[in-house]
Design a binder for these strands. Structure first.
Length: 573
RNA sequence: CGGGGUGUAGCGCAGCCUGGUAGCGCAACUGCUUUGGGAGCAGUGGGUCGGGAGUUCGAAUCUCUCCACCCCGACCA
């Protein structure tokens, strides 16, 4: 590609709207332009990268024997009403009407359309298992789109769906897909990690996420320093603490604690060690519970894990905290003065809380706390559960090693859906036994456009983007110095350009006649991994200058045999 | 949806408080010079001051209203 024929529009100034580095750089080098909130146009440069990612994904899926298809972006309401998601999906579902007033949505995902397709196409267990996928523009009306293409409303996603006659077969494909994903992300050249995950709104049982590791990642992931264990911290199990509860050494006493409503105030004002305090959180109870509310106890320095809490049978799902008024009405004290002793609500304590002794908690009376509380002696031992969020240094739940934390950007997610959709949509096959069987399903997503942004988050420096080679928009930048004045330079560059193209190199030839500094800065900004400079200086000695994007020093390549040398650098021969 | 903020040239901003007919830098265009790390000089074009209503002789500036966008919280590839 010649620069003179390529729409490259870079800016020195950072657009004010861009918060994170990938968004800033994508705008600065013209990869994307915003049309409206959360909706972006991909320019020629951006599309090149998007296509490279897409091709890696497509190639690995094809190799694995999965079949590509393309489903409609616009989907009729009836399908979504069949699974109940027309209502359940919530505000993220963009609903539209045609001229006759019929309801449609712009597809945020394609389980319904896919399941409909398969129930009409597949009749016999002999046709299973089968896996289809597509690469499609999706629309989710995010409450708050942000970070450019990272969390856009319209985005490009690869979604795959597998169908099986039984759970075991689904499980097998699930793990195959896990391996395919591992190959895909390995091939992108990005640092990534797979983690156990919550299956969330899409439903189902087993689930893994694939994260690109980057400081700016929105998710926190936990992994063991001594085993393969890794999970999203939103669901990381905390191993049951070992050891016995210490015997009481203190008397229970009531202390006046005016204006003390937080753990910090308690610790700072009364010298209580924070590990000897308990936080009491009041949440709405599940519908079939006798009480309206449930009290959850965690140690003062711990954070309640909402996902764990809402999975408790006693607790309403989704999790809803009681209002100050609810708490006053049912307990007679404010939220800053609660504790297990004398509490009229059902209590569930985090497992480590049950091992505490001589601890401090609110007295369920404003401006008073109990000190020296001990289980059994002062209050009945509570029901326990794993309630807190895991932190760095916790024992790994698999019993091997200690947890470490990292930040990640979720770029892939695989689920075992089971029969959640096939049952409500009556997707059945005839089995060996001549009877109908509901198909088992798996579903597997990759955020293609998000990968582009994540790649930049992980690979950039002061000068711009440093693309991993497999997804770079071009492999090589060819920069002639002052070609307008120098015949030799121009001629050598033109010849080399043609030879490189013939050799199959994706080369960006900067024939724009700009000052060298401008070219260098542009090439570094858009992150082309390899750079070749042709100038009078080098030609005198028959040399070209070569540099990799991440290097700071040039090396020399003889003009004679330069193409072979470059192919070698690019790993193409 | 709640809380905060911003809308003035393609981009980044000043002007608004204290009303008087719109400006700076970058980018773009023309010419000349320059050419190994975002050049210099001279010149040129480009604005419904987010929209509407109001106050006023006069509104970018004051008032009301609507809209868009951005940031902080709960969702997700």
């Amino acid at each position: 590609m010649k620069a003179s024929k390529f729409h490259l529009f870079t800016t020195r100034e950072t657009p004010a709207e861009a918060e994170i580095v990938s968004h800033q750089l994508m705008l600065r080098c013209g990869m994307i332009r915003k049309l409206t909130s959360g909706i972006y146009t991909w320019g020629p440069l951006g599309l090149r990268v998007l296509r490279k990612v897409e091709e890696i994904v497509r190639d690995e899926l094809n190799k694995a024997g999965y079949q590509e298809m393309l489903m409609p972006a616009v989907q009729p309401a009836e399908l979504w009403q069949e699974t109940g998601r027309w209502k359940k999906f919530g505000g993220q579902l963009l609903k539209i009407q045609d001229r006759a007033g019929r309801d449609y949505c712009f597809g945020p995902t394609h389980e319904e359309v896919m399941t409909d397709f398969v129930r009409n196409e597949i009749r016999s267990y002999k046709q299973l298992p089968i896996t289809f996928y597509q690469i499609q523009t999706k629309f989710r009306d995010e409450i708050r789109p942000r970070f450019g293409v990272m969390r856009a409303r319209e985005f490009l996603m690869k979604d795959a769906y597998s169908f099986h006659s039984d759970h075991q077969c689904m499980d097998k494909t699930y793990w195959e897909m896990y391996d395919v994903y591992t190959r895909i992300f390995t091939r992108t050249g990005l640092h990534f990690r797979s983690v156990e995950a919550d299956s969330g709104a899409i439903g189902g049982n087993k689930s893994h996420e694939f994260h690109v590791l980057a400081e700016s990642g929105e998710d926190q992931i936990a992994f063991s320093d001594q085993s393969d264990y890794a999970s999203n911290t939103e669901m990381t199990a905390v191993a049951a603490p070992r050891g016995e509860r210490a015997a009481p050494t203190e008397e229970l006493r009531t202390i006046d604690t005016p204006d003390t409503h937080t753990i910090d105030e308690l610790v700072n004002g009364y010298g209580v060690p924070i590990e000897k305090t308990i936080k009491t959180l009041v949440v709405h109870a599940a519908d079939d519970n006798e009480a309206d509310f449930v009290a959850l106890l965690v140690r003062g320095d711990r954070t309640l894990n909402p996902l764990k809490a809402e999975k408790l049978e006693q607790v309403a799902s989704p999790l809803l905290f009681a209002s100050d008024k609810d708490i006053h009405d049912s307990i007679g004290a404010g939220p800053g003065s609660l504790g297990p002793v004398g509490l009229s609500l059902p209590v569930v304590a985090d497992q480590e809380v049950a091992l505490m002794s001589d601890f401090t908690a609110g007295a369920n009376s404003d401006d008073q706390h109990y000190f020296g509380i001990n289980w059994d002696r002062d209050v009945e031992s509570p029901l326990t559960a794993d309630l807190r969020t895991a932190v760095e240094g916790d024992n790994s739940p698999d019993g091997k090693g200690v947890l470490q934390m990292a930040r990640g950007i979720e770029v892939g997610h695989i689920f075992q859906l089971g029969t959640a959709y096939s049952e409500s949509m009556n997707a059945v096959v005839l089995g060996e036994d001549g009877k109908s069987h509901v198909m088992h399903m798996g579903c597997y997503g990759i955020g293609v456009s998000r990968i582009v942004a994540a790649a930049i988050e992980q690979n950039n420096d002061e000068s711009g983007i440093c693309w991993p080679e497999p997804i770079a928009p071009f492999q090589l930048a060819l920069l002639p110095m002052n070609a307008k004045k120098s015949h030799r330079v121009r001629e050598a560059a033109e010849n080399l350009y043609v030879e490189l193209i013939d050799a199959g190199v994706d080369v960006f030839y900067d024939d724009r006649n700009l000052r060298p500094g401008v070219m260098f800065n542009d090439m570094e900004l858009i992150g082309i991994p390899h750079r070749l400079v042709i100038g009078e200086r080098g030609l005198d000695s028959g040399m070209l200058e070569y540099r990799q994007r991440k290097d700071t020093e040039n090396s020399e390549i003889p003009l004679d045999g330069a193409v072979d040398a470059i192919l070698h650098k690019l790993g193409m021969n």
